[in-house]
Design a protein around this nucleic acid. Structure first.
Lengths: 150, 150
DNA sequence: GACAAATTGGATGTCAAGGTCCAATTCTCG
DNA sequence: CGAGAATTGGACCTTGACATCCAATTTGTC
């Protein structure tokens, strides 16, 4: 139900939240999050334009979070790459009823609203701090060499 | 976020709930719900196989609901054509953690669960009976000639 | 300045969802 | 029975999401 792109963007952002010290290259993020490198680059560009992450080119460059994790919600990330499309008017195209939705679409839309709210009220910081569970990215990131260079 | 197919299936089922008396042909349903006729036929077949609607061929044939609207939930319809895919194990493919999800995917999945619950707890009958709003299908069905035949 | 490391942008490929079309089948009615 | 009404099933087309590849650009280091 959520697009691959959303999944990828969230993984990338979680990784960046952990590696806050130094800019992460696309290669590093791709390896840690198991996302196809070339496509990840596109997704990161979108996050860049939405001012979720910042980037620097050239040697020593890479990506990092534009804000502290406590000020970055899941919804911010989702909206940057694949916004939740709320139902704002009748999908049948009839403008006869103005903005009022019929009961069917009101239910559908309120389900969307619930998702939106859940995402809006969860910051990255909360995800990182969650107690009593396995770590985000399923510990994959930490089992892999992240800064290794021969 | 919900597929077109889900939208079409729900419209069709709502229409059938209103026209409970007599079998509705694909043409009639398509006209009332503004869904492409040929594609609607495919969707209706899926609903048929899932035992949501029943059909009869030949003259006087058509489609009708297999159960009373009070015993048919939105979730039933959704699951018949495009089931909600809950997140049951780490999308990164690591089986190292067994079934336990990391905090990130736990949040995503619980959003899916919320949608599923909302859909499970809403019957067609409730949608038809909703007070104080415009009617399902945005009254389009009632403005169109449904049984007209020259 | 030259080289290597990194992002950026454009062109292209692949695949499933959405959509169309037509022939085959099944049913009812006269 | 036969004709017409309707579903059923298969083949096909189109489009956007996902993904890949390569050239251009920017940046740091020697």
């Amino acid at each position: 139900m959520f697009s691959q792109t959303v999944e990828y963007a969230l993984r990338a952002v979680v990784h960046l939240a952990y590696q806050a010290e130094v800019p992460q290259t696309t290669d590093q993020i791709a390896a840690a999050t198991r996302v196809p490198k070339a496509y990840l680059a596109k997704v990161l560009q979108q996050l860049c334009q939405a001012n979720i992450v910042q980037s620097r080119r050239g040697m020593g460059g890479g990506m990092w979070l534009a804000r502290p994790p406590g000020q970055l919600t899941i919804l911010d990330v989702v909206n940057a790459v694949d916004p939740i499309r709320r139902i704002r008017h009748c999908p049948l195209g009839l403008s006869a009823h103005g903005v009022r939705l019929c009961p069917l679409h009101k239910r559908l839309d309120s389900a969307l609203a619930a998702v939106e709210d859940a995402f809006r009220s969860t910051t990255l910081a909360e995800i990182l701090a969650e107690p009593n569970t396995s770590r985000p990215l399923c510990d994959v990131a930490w089992a892999l060499p992240v800064t290794t260079k021969t």
